[in-house]
Every structure is written in structure tokens, then in C-alpha cells.
Amino acid sequence: MGSSSPLHFLNSTPLLSSPISPAHSSISSPGREIERLAKARSKLLESENQQTPRIPPETREQHRYVSKDGKCRVNLGHIDERGRFLSDIFTSFVDLQYRWFLFVFMMCYITTWFLFAGLYYINASIRGDLVQERPLGTNQNKYGEQYACYVGIDGFISALLFSVETQRTIGYGSRTVSASCQEGVLLVMLQCIVGSMIDALMVGCMFVKISRPKKRAETLLFSRTCVIANRDDQLCLMFRIGDLRESHMVDAKVRAKLIKSRQTAEGEFLPLEQTEIDLGYETGSDRLFLVEPQVIKHNIDVNSPLWNLGPEQLRRQQFEIIVILEGIVEATGMMCQAKTSYIETEIEWGARFEPCMTLEKGSFRVDLRRFHSTYKVPLPNCSASQAHQLM
């Protein structure tokens, strides 16, 4: 028995006729213990897989330099010289979010109201012009002197009301300042000047904030994907741009950048190198008359950064194409800029955009339902450089 294996022991246990004690069973059944541990391990692995699901590499979302809606995903940290923002206080106010913008100006008004109310109250208290120390309706202070400095101020609340009435030019008539009070007249003049400056700053900031041209970019459309196909026997990268408004962009221009990481010959790593993508700068085709949706093309020639990239290389590479559309808003005359980006998985090889403009009753009609639609066309699965060598 001493040389018997666990498997031989398990095979011989059914022949026993006497019951086995629990203690003896736990010692003499190592096979069941191994099976129990294996089941526990499998359950543990299943629970771990449920808590942390594994995502295939092809379905992972790539970090974008510029999002599809044009927002740059770059966060500046460890800014030591915060005082630079105060040197351009107007732009700092305009860049604030609306809740902080309204909060700052509310605090400006409230602060000036309380500040001048305190000055009025202190001045009236020093001169003895508080109403509780003289008969109501008279213009005498507690010493019986005529022409008190402030009329109708009996405490800080009435001084606060007088401050609000002065700055907002309400003037209910129950609280006034006497002409014989030089310091009171100077305070009123100073508060009127400060109030006018705050009003001018708020109106200017509010107008600029409401009419900011980046809101105009919300009505500019970019196609969801880029396509690569032949046009006039030339391999081209193409995307579509459109405008939803009837007021058109003035002097509209489009340009594109290729963002890609690379390592130099000296071993320096460049994380976000920007390479210009020519959209027809020399020929003037980058200047648009954006009345209807237009397909913008980039000729993939020997000077193009996509010259050596075929369909397989596009899937293996990691890069981002940023498209920038600039123009002047016709209504306001302000410069507007709209941006979007395309990563390698958003480039369709061998495809073209469906036509979305037709002629109906003497005018052109644009069907925006086809703006993002594409259709397949035959195209060899080789890069532009390989196709050039085969010619």
C-alpha cells in the first residue's frame, strides 16, 4: 500500500464496503482535491475576465490630437507665470465659460455697490448726517446745521440703496446728496465713472462672446471619412466640405497637416511632427467658393507624405490628418476656423463620394443625406510609388 499511486487508490475505493470517515476521506482523495482546485481556478479566471474585458487591438480607440468636432486635445500644465493672463484681461474674460463670465461681472457690480455704500455710510456717520439723529424730512444734522451731506440715509442698507441708485441711475428721489458736500459729490462722480467702465467692459465682452466665429463653425460640415481613388489618372486623397448656411464664407481657404511620430537619424524622437499636405496652394485650388459641398483632393505624388503608403501600410501606420478650414464670416467680418481630423481607420481605399447635387427647376439642389455616402471603385492594392514603378 505504501507504493500504491493515488490513481490506484481511487480505483480501489468503490470496492470498499465499509463507510469512510470524513477525515479519512479528505486525506485519501487527492484526486478530488485537485479537481476542486481546478474548478476554483477556472471560476476565478472567469470572474477576472468579466471584470477586465480584453479589447482587441483593432477595436481600441486611438488618442486623437484633434477631435472630430475640432477641439484640440492638448492640456497645458504647470503654468508658472499666471500673470500673463491678466495682461490681456479682455481676452481672458471672453475665454471664460458663461457661468464664470456672469459670476465675475455680478461680483464686479456687487463689490462696487458695497464698496461705495461703505464710503457713503462712513462719510455720513462722520458728518453726523444719519437720519435717525435728525427729524425725518429735514435737511439738518444732529448739530442743527443746515445742508446735511446726505438726505435719506439712516443706516448701511439705505446707503447701499443710494449706491445702487447712483450707479444704475435709478434715482427714486428719497435719497440725495447735497451740493454743499464736496466729498459726497466726488464719490458720486467716481462711482458713475467706475459703473460706466464696468458696463462698457461687460457689454463689449458679451457682444464678442455671443458673436464669436467659432459658433459659425458648427454649421460647417466635414465628411466622416477620407477616400483614396484615381482622379484624372492620378491617385488622390479626397474629403468633402460643406456649408449649411445661406450666408457664405468670404475668402475661404483649406489646408491640411499630417501628424505622425518618427525618430530622426540622430535618435531623437519627435512625438507629434507636423507635415504639410498640399491641397493645391500653388494652383489656387485651396481657395474655395463654398456655395455647394466640394470634394477637396490631395495628389499623392512623390512629394506627398502618403507616397509610399498602400492599403496594408495605412492599417499598420498610426497617423492623423488634420483639416483646417478658414474664412471670414459674411455677417460679422470676423475670421472663422473649423477643424476636424481623420485617423488611419477613417480612410477608405478604393472609394469615391456619391454625388449630392442635382439640377431641379432651374436651380441646383443639394441632398445632404448623401454628404457622407461613398461607393467602392476598383483600385490596385499598392502604394503610389509601387504603381509608378510598374508603369
Score class of each variant (00 low, 15 high):
P305T: 04
S247W: 09
L288D: 03
P293V: 02
L288T: 05
R231L: 10
D251L: 12
Y281H: 09
T275M: 13
V302K: 15
K257M: 09
I300R: 07
N299L: 11
K257F: 15
R315K: 15
I228R: 12
L279Y: 01
I328E: 08
L309S: 03
L270Q: 12
Q274C: 07
I296Q: 12
K260G: 00
D243P: 02
L290F: 12
H248D: 01
I328G: 00
K253E: 13
K260P: 00
E326A: 08
F269M: 11
K297L: 12
E312M: 11
L314K: 04
G327A: 10
G280T: 06
R316N: 12
A229D: 13
R262L: 14
I228W: 10
R245E: 13
E320N: 07
G280S: 08
Q234R: 14
Q317I: 00
L325M: 09
P305K: 11
E268H: 13
R240L: 06
V254W: 13
W307D: 05
P311A: 06
T264Q: 06
K253L: 09
P293E: 02
S304Y: 10
A252N: 07
E273N: 11
I322Q: 13
E292L: 14
N299F: 13
D251C: 08
R315D: 05
R262G: 01
N230A: 05
P271L: 09
A331Y: 05
L244F: 04
T225Q: 14
Q313K: 15
E273M: 09
D301V: 06
T275Q: 12
L258A: 05
A229P: 00
Q313T: 06
E312K: 15
K297M: 14
K260F: 08
R287C: 13
V254E: 03
C226A: 15
Q318S: 12
R262I: 01
Q294F: 05
R240C: 08
I328T: 14
L325W: 10
H248Y: 10
V295H: 02
A265S: 11
L235H: 02
I228Y: 06
I228E: 12
R262N: 06
R287W: 11
F319T: 00
A256G: 06
N230G: 00
D278A: 08
M249E: 03
